[in-house]
Amino acid sequence: MLNNTKTKIFVDCHVFDGNFQGTRTYIQGLYLELIKDSTKDFYLAAYDIKNLKQIFGEQDNLKYVKYYFKNPFIRLLFEIPRLIFKNKIDFAHFQYRVPPLKLCKYIVTTHDVLFEDFPEDFPRLNRFQSFLTYKFSAKISDIIFTVSEYSKIQIEKHLKVKNVVVMPNGIDDIFFEEYDKEKTVLDVKKEHGISNYILYVSRWEPRKNHHLLLKSFVNQKIYENYHLVFIGDNTFKNKDFDTLFNSLEEKIKQKIICFKRVEFEKMILLLRGSNVSVYPSRAEGFGIPPLESVAAKIPTICSNQTAMGDFDFFDNYFFNPTNQKDLDEKLNYVIENKDENLLQKREIIKQKYNWKIAAKIFNSQIEKFTDS
């Protein structure tokens, strides 16, 4: 081992202090599995450690470390190195960016480098900052994880690094839990005044293609029988969506509902109450929402591009997100026919994408250092 006691792993959990996002799901799913290993001590760090305790609980090998600064530069430059030194940490795990001062082994998870493959979808300053910090972080890290074969290839190409390890996301057990569909539909109607709706869960960026789904919803007059519900906070504005939405008649606008900042429990309720889930994104490093919706037994159609091409079990429920006609046809098909193979797909996802597999891959990389 790296020292004479338990291996100490520091985890930067600052994403739990802000709005709900994919990296939070990733850390939560992975570490709820990893902390079952009593041969390691885990140091989870955030500003709001009370929130962390509610998620991860209390146990002997789990320590909570409080950040006193929310500023990311102060946190990376000064606060985290001090905490690593103070607690004699062996490994520190970060998402995308690591501190420049290295006092232990670094693990970085780079989920994607989509700003390099789709530069038109990202502000220039964002692309420049991301490229420099992601490349530096990958270069000085001892272990580089990513979540799909697509991302591995693109990260190695653009950041000029080797030996990127694919550790796929898992789907949380809550999505596979059984529920009363009729009661859920009634609960959604009581709380939000809607029933019969098509759902898209994703933050707002141009590459997420919200406007393509809106076009399909409007042009095919799906609004006559359904609502269209979006769940996700803003990252970058989608001007195409805004232009189309603003041109619509008021009666159509009333059938389109956008939830920005949604608590996890509310998102689960809205997902379970939906008729159909659609994921029209043009570019993803992984693309977890369509897997979650299938796990929840919601008929789902999914983009077949970038990392989502790995989800070949979607079969006839795949579509090209650059082709409006293809989306129109698949959306009509799933509305009318549902999905007779939904339970089979659900089982494939349960076996292939789970946090036990991810934890096993994580530990195998750690052991290369602890066994030496």
Rank of each mutant, 00 (worst) to 15 (best):
S130P: 08
D17S: 03
P81N: 04
E249C: 13
D12S: 11
C104Y: 03
Y197P: 04
Y226S: 08
H93Q: 03
P321L: 08
L34A: 06
Y68E: 07
L2M: 13
F176L: 01
F313N: 06
M167A: 11
Q365L: 10
V166E: 09
N3V: 07
N320E: 04
P168S: 01
K105A: 02
N234G: 04
F128G: 10
D326M: 10
Q344P: 05
V229M: 07
F56A: 06
E79W: 06
I84K: 02
R97E: 15
V11Y: 03
I257C: 02
I155Q: 02
F73P: 01
I357V: 14
C104E: 08
Y223C: 04
F236M: 12
V65N: 09
L228W: 09
K255N: 13
C302I: 02
I349S: 04
K86F: 01
E120F: 09
K135L: 09
K63G: 09
F69V: 11
K102H: 02
Q305I: 00
R203C: 13
L269W: 07
K152G: 06
L125P: 04
I194W: 06
N61D: 03
F230E: 03
E367L: 15
I194V: 14
L2W: 06
F311A: 08
I107Q: 04
L269H: 00
A295C: 06
E58K: 14
D315S: 15
T23F: 12
N3K: 14
A358K: 05
L271D: 00
E58H: 13
L44V: 09
D326S: 11
K40F: 09
V108P: 04
N19F: 12
K221R: 13
F311V: 05
Q59L: 11
Y31L: 11
Q28M: 14
Y47V: 08
I80G: 05
K162A: 12
I27N: 06
L159F: 09
C302S: 15
V15M: 13
V164F: 11
A295R: 00
F245I: 04
D12A: 12
S137Q: 05
H192V: 10
K253G: 12
K215S: 12
K70F: 04
L291K: 05
